[in-house]
Design a protein around this nucleic acid. Structure first.
Lengths: 237, 237
DNA sequence: CGCACGATTTAAGTATGACTTTTAAATCAC
DNA sequence: GTGATTTAAAAGTCATACTTAAATCGTGCG
């Protein structure tokens, strides 16, 4: 009945988390649902120790709230720490995936142009070289159904931009962008090569950063992310 | 010796967290430092249960990693979940505050214009009214050393924009923006009223959103956040 | 001499029972 | 019916015993 996954992480608490987290973010337990610890103990056949640790983590993500004499209450989505990497992963794996992908794409579209502008002023020589290399690899793999290879370079390119921005928070979004790009590739028709214009834009961004031209780096990046937004509108207007 | 704060949260685990979290994010324990649970038990005079729960939460934030036969290892800052609201608060309260404020301001500057553009297309009539009200209140409190009152309306204005964007992740940044704005007010000379131009810009944004003019809403918001970035450059170029 | 493999030992992980504290809810007094 | 008081339910805490993984060390073999 419960316990859908055959346990993801290692350690009982991690397994419990991997079971409860996705379930809650998927909406299996409507906000207000009360879970009692001893009930969870029985349901998952683990000790209090394990249940309590898992609940603590869920509580730190604001997915639940634990109160004496009441129990562990599931909180409404507005309370959730939607920036928590774990929460993002759980939601991407659940029925909320489309909505989550939209939010993340909007986030990307806001952040990446700014990151590119900063990168133009901050990137090291090594990072500039890296960018150019990734862009050229994207060009090389952009034709002839080499989508998986293309994706690798695409992710690496955007990761480098975000890291080169010098902003720790932007840098942290590398994983998120990787997820979004992977999700896009996944849903793309397998034989459609990436848009040549988008590929060119990446080369342009690399050039602009190397030339320390923040304005152009930002503009071309914005065009890239506009493309991503447009795709979403096409997929589900 | 330790246990600086007289305990912030309620519950022993929360107190331990409130002690360890700030210490780690402040860099009191350099990356690689190993904390043994039994040592923590003695240092804070709490039971195993409590220590373990606190450590679990720290682990979920990627501040530490717990391994058998090794102990609880403090991770390098690159690993930290810098988007975790708790981590943000801890760092804002510690020596990393200036750097954190910079990162957050850059984040704001990227997000808010995008949010305003979305809000122009999404805001409900009630939200439009709310925006106008907050903007007018800002005008009213912008002169005569009413900074605390001004701050309240300023925060409310930006919160409304973020919520009205319809993007759950943008909405979640309300608290962060509030922190940044509060931090700015705090450091401002007490008798300097806010920049009249900035005040006007808020009114313009409210108008643009009401008029469903995404382009103008975005542009005026960008000018507001540019101002915030400029202030940072002046404070520490 | 070095490497591999197994015993050792350390520290985290798990289980359990007893007890405390908070607090919602029911009961009682007025 | 309102307010004070009691009750009980569930989380919180503690202490202890036991299990498990993995570094370390030692021995023996190549």
């Amino acid at each position: 009945m419960d316990n859908q996954g055959p346990s993801t992480g290692r350690g009982l608490h991690a397994r419990l988390l991997a079971s409860l987290g996705p379930a809650i973010t998927a909406g299996d337990y409507p906000p207000g649902t009360v879970l009692r610890t001893d009930e969870l103990e029985r349901r998952f056949d683990v000790s209090r120790t394990v249940v309590r640790e898992a609940v603590r983590v869920l509580e730190s993500m604001h997915l639940v709230r634990s109160r004496r004499r009441v129990g562990v209450t599931v909180l409404p989505p507005e309370e959730w720490d939607v920036f928590d990497s774990q929460v993002i992963r759980w939601r991407l794996a659940g029925p909320d995936r489309p909505r989550q992908l939209r939010s993340l794409t909007a986030l990307r579209s806001a952040i990446e142009p700014a990151a590119a502008a900063l990168a133009a002023g901050q990137a090291t020589a090594a990072q500039c070289a890296e960018l150019t290399e990734h862009a050229l690899n994207m060009v090389a793999t952009s034709r002839g159904q080499q989508l998986p290879a293309y994706l690798v370079h695409d992710v690496a390119f955007h990761r480098t931009i975000l890291r080169a921005s010098g902003n720790e928070m932007f840098a942290r979004l590398g994983d998120v962008v990787a997820e979004v790009l992977a999700g896009r590739t996944e849903h793309r028709v397998m034989f459609s090569d990436p848009d040549p214009e988008a590929v060119t834009l990446h080369v342009r961004v690399a050039e602009a950063v190397r030339a320390r031209d923040a304005e152009r780096a930002e503009r071309y990046t914005r065009e890239i992310t506009w493309g991503a937004l447009r795709e979403l509108d096409i997929l589900a207007p």
